[in-house]
């Protein structure tokens, strides 16, 4: 069976770097950037994109709704 593969897009200017997405991700995809955004926050980004399963946990928990989640349809073998 093909494993679902996901990807996220973070609105890095809106992100406040609270980090709750980092701790909720089951596959440790998300890191906070060493760099800061215009507001001075260490924004979230996909540090380990290959591990994303597209579960949407990060999108659901983000208090500022900065994360859009995509999941590839599993390809039938």
């Amino acid at each position: 069976m093909a494993k679902a593969k996901g990807a996220i897009v973070v609105d890095t200017e809106k992100c406040k770097g609270c980090g709750v997405c980092v701790s909720t991700c089951p596959t440790q995809v998300i890191n906070l950037a060493a760099d800061v955004n215009g507001k001075g926050y260490h924004y979230a980004y996909m540090g380990n994109p290959d591990a994303c399963i597209g579960c949407a946990n990060c999108g659901v928990i983000c208090p500022d709704t900065c994360i859009t989640v995509y999941r590839a349809k599993p390809v039938k073998a």
């Binding site: 996901g6 990807a7 590839a72």
Partner: peptide
């Protein structure tokens, strides 16, 4: 293949 996954038909949360 992150860039190929990010397309409207794969959107699940926004």
């Amino acid at each position: 293949d992150t860039n190929t996954i990010i397309s409207p038909e794969n959107l699940i949360y926004k």
